[in-house]
Simulated assay, not measured.
Amino acid sequence: MILIADSGSSKTDWRLIGSDASIQQVKTIGFNPYYQDSASIADELKLHLLPKINEPITEIYYYGTGITNLEKSQVLIDAFNSVFRECPKAYVHNDMLGAARALAGHHTGIVCILGTGSNSCFYDGEQIAHQIPPLGFWLGDEGSGGYLGKQLVLSYLHKELPTELREKFEKRYGAKDRLEILDNAYHKPFPNRYFASFSKFLFDNRQHPFIYRLVFEAFTAFFEKYLLKYPAIHQCKIHFTGSVAFYYSDILRQVANSKACTVGIIAETPIAGLTLYHQQTN
């Protein structure tokens, strides 16, 4: 059985390809080696993944956020080794390569992730050939769910939201004070998840001119700070994956058109493409 995973900060999509070519889907929480150690990841796998597996695992292909160097990838490898002791092959890659393989396959293209966080790369059909490095939640993540939520909360705190939106916001979340938001931003874990949780409000109200402009400007910032710096930006297609890209695809396409860029595939998650990629490779 082959185990394939696409893991973001919020959730992990798993596909189990059986020896009879059957495909099983499983979901667990997201993993990030910057915030979790091997033991805690292994505990989650034993609790929510292992009970769904009914034959030996022969290969593992894991693509996830936070896999920035060998040290971070080893955190996941150690977790897999403790849970699937008989598995001879466990490959851990960053989520950017996973998105590239899922969306572009063996073709050249620019590939982007717009989910809880944001990222991008130029993919040459085999590997990531060039990347404008992302700066994370506090210094970057333009266009992501975390960034969108942060912009919404800032507008709320600065009393910039139109009255009707402010009333809707407080009806949905209750009145928010500065100290509560600062506590979630600086003291509690996963501030990106906290702020990304507000992006659903933006989606539900995206027809409002204020919200539309906020989202349009967030995607524009993503293009200007990252995508437009790729030399091949106007010569190849730009593919996107992630919940933000998928659910705001209409606005995303409008921003791309305004920059004379060609959008290719927009997929909510890369897991289906990754499953096909590894079925064809193995």
Score class of each variant (00 low, 15 high):
residue 4 I to H: 05
residue 5 A to M: 05
residue 6 D to P: 00
residue 9 S to T: 10
residue 10 S to G: 00
residue 14 W to R: 09
residue 16 L to M: 11
residue 18 G to Y: 09
residue 25 Q to W: 03
residue 26 V to Y: 05
residue 31 F to P: 01
residue 32 N to I: 10
residue 39 A to M: 02
residue 49 L to T: 08
residue 53 I to Q: 02
residue 63 Y to G: 08
residue 65 T to I: 13
residue 66 G to R: 07
residue 73 S to E: 12
residue 83 V to M: 11
residue 88 P to E: 04
residue 91 Y to D: 11
residue 91 Y to R: 12
residue 93 H to L: 02
residue 96 M to D: 01
residue 97 L to I: 12
residue 100 A to R: 00
residue 111 V to A: 02
residue 112 C to R: 00
residue 121 C to I: 07
residue 128 I to H: 07
residue 129 A to V: 03
residue 134 P to S: 14
residue 135 L to D: 01
residue 137 F to I: 10
residue 139 L to G: 01
residue 145 G to R: 09
residue 146 G to T: 10
residue 147 Y to F: 15
residue 150 K to I: 03
residue 158 H to G: 01
residue 160 E to W: 00
residue 171 K to W: 00
residue 174 G to V: 07
residue 175 A to I: 11
residue 177 D to V: 05
residue 178 R to S: 08
residue 181 I to P: 01
residue 182 L to Y: 09
residue 183 D to L: 07
residue 187 H to S: 08
residue 188 K to E: 09
residue 188 K to H: 11
residue 191 P to L: 06
residue 196 A to N: 05
residue 199 S to E: 12
residue 200 K to T: 13
residue 202 L to D: 02
residue 204 D to S: 08
residue 206 R to L: 05
residue 214 L to Y: 01
residue 218 A to L: 03
residue 223 F to N: 00
residue 223 F to P: 02
residue 225 K to E: 10
residue 228 L to C: 09
residue 232 A to Y: 00
residue 233 I to V: 15
residue 235 Q to K: 14
residue 235 Q to S: 15
residue 236 C to P: 00
residue 239 H to W: 08
residue 240 F to K: 02
residue 243 S to R: 05
residue 244 V to A: 04
residue 244 V to T: 08
residue 260 A to S: 14
residue 261 C to Y: 11
residue 262 T to V: 15
residue 264 G to A: 11
residue 269 T to S: 15
residue 270 P to N: 03
residue 271 I to K: 11
residue 272 A to I: 10
residue 278 H to D: 00
